[in-house]
Computed example of a mutant assay.
Amino acid sequence: MADMQTAMRKRILASGAAPRVVWGRKVPQGTALPYLQLIVVSDPRPGHLKGYNGGRHTRVQADCKAESYAEAKAMSDALVPLLAVPTTIDGVKFGRTKAEGPQDLGEDTAAGFVHRMSLDLLVWHRSV
C-alpha cells in the first residue's frame, strides 16, 4: 500500500497533467522545466474518543512551473478537474479535492524567469 504522496504523484503522472512531479520544498538540482512541485502545508489528523478518524484533509500547495505562462497555466488547468474525481490508487482512497487558485507567482531566478501558477489543494484521502 502506498502513502498519499506516492499515490497522488502516480495519479498525476499517469494522467499526463504534468511531465514531472516533485514532492517537498527542495527540488533536485537540474530538474527540467516544466514540473509540478507539491508541498504539504498542513495535515491535521481529526480524531474522537476512540482514536483518529481514517480519513483526513491534507492541504497541499501545488506549484506548476514552466518556461511559458501558457504551459504553467495549462498544467494548473489540467490538475483541477483531474483531482476533483474520486478514485482509489494503490490502497489510497481519494475523495473530491477542492482547489483554490491559481495565483500567478512567476519569478526571476538565476536561470531566468520561471512562470509559476500556484494552487492550494484540500485533498481528502484515507488508506483502504
Score class of each variant (00 low, 15 high):
S118K: 12
V40D: 02
R9F: 01
R9V: 08
Y52S: 15
H125S: 13
T87S: 13
R11S: 14
G101H: 00
R25L: 10
A111P: 08
A66T: 05
V123D: 06
K26H: 12
M75G: 05
D43E: 14
K65R: 15
P46T: 07
N53F: 14
A78C: 02
F94T: 03
G47W: 10
G106F: 02
R9S: 15
S15K: 03
Y69V: 13
G91W: 08
Q5G: 07
S15E: 06
M117V: 10
V128A: 15
D63T: 13
V40L: 02
E67D: 15
V80K: 11
K93E: 12
P81M: 06
A62K: 07
S15L: 05
M8L: 09
A66F: 01
L119K: 13
R116Q: 15
R59P: 04
A18P: 03
L79M: 04
V41P: 05
K65P: 01
S15P: 01
Q103T: 09
P19F: 04
I39R: 06
H115K: 12
I12Y: 07
D3M: 07
R59L: 08
F94D: 02
R116D: 07
C64Y: 01
G47Q: 02
Y35C: 02
R96E: 05
E107T: 11
W23Q: 00
P28A: 01
V85F: 00
P34T: 02
L121W: 06
H57D: 14
W124L: 15
T31S: 11
I12F: 08
R9M: 05
H57G: 11
Y69G: 04
G51Y: 00
A70Y: 11
D3E: 08
L105K: 11
R9D: 09
K73I: 11
I39T: 13
V22K: 00
Y52T: 13
V123Q: 02
D63E: 14
L82V: 00
P86W: 11
M1V: 09
G55N: 03
D108I: 10
A14T: 11
T58P: 01
A2L: 09
L38I: 05
H57L: 13
A84M: 12
I39P: 06
D104V: 08
V21E: 00
K26G: 09
I39G: 04
L82T: 04
T88H: 01
V40K: 00
W124Y: 15
Q61E: 12
V41G: 11
P81R: 10
H125Q: 02
G101A: 07
T58S: 05
L79E: 09
L49A: 14
A17E: 02
C64A: 15
V41C: 04
G54N: 14
D63Y: 09
S68V: 08
N53Q: 15
Q37A: 01
P46S: 05
V128P: 13
P34R: 08
V80R: 14
K93A: 11
V123T: 06
R20K: 09
T87W: 12
M8K: 06
V128M: 15
R45K: 13
G106I: 05
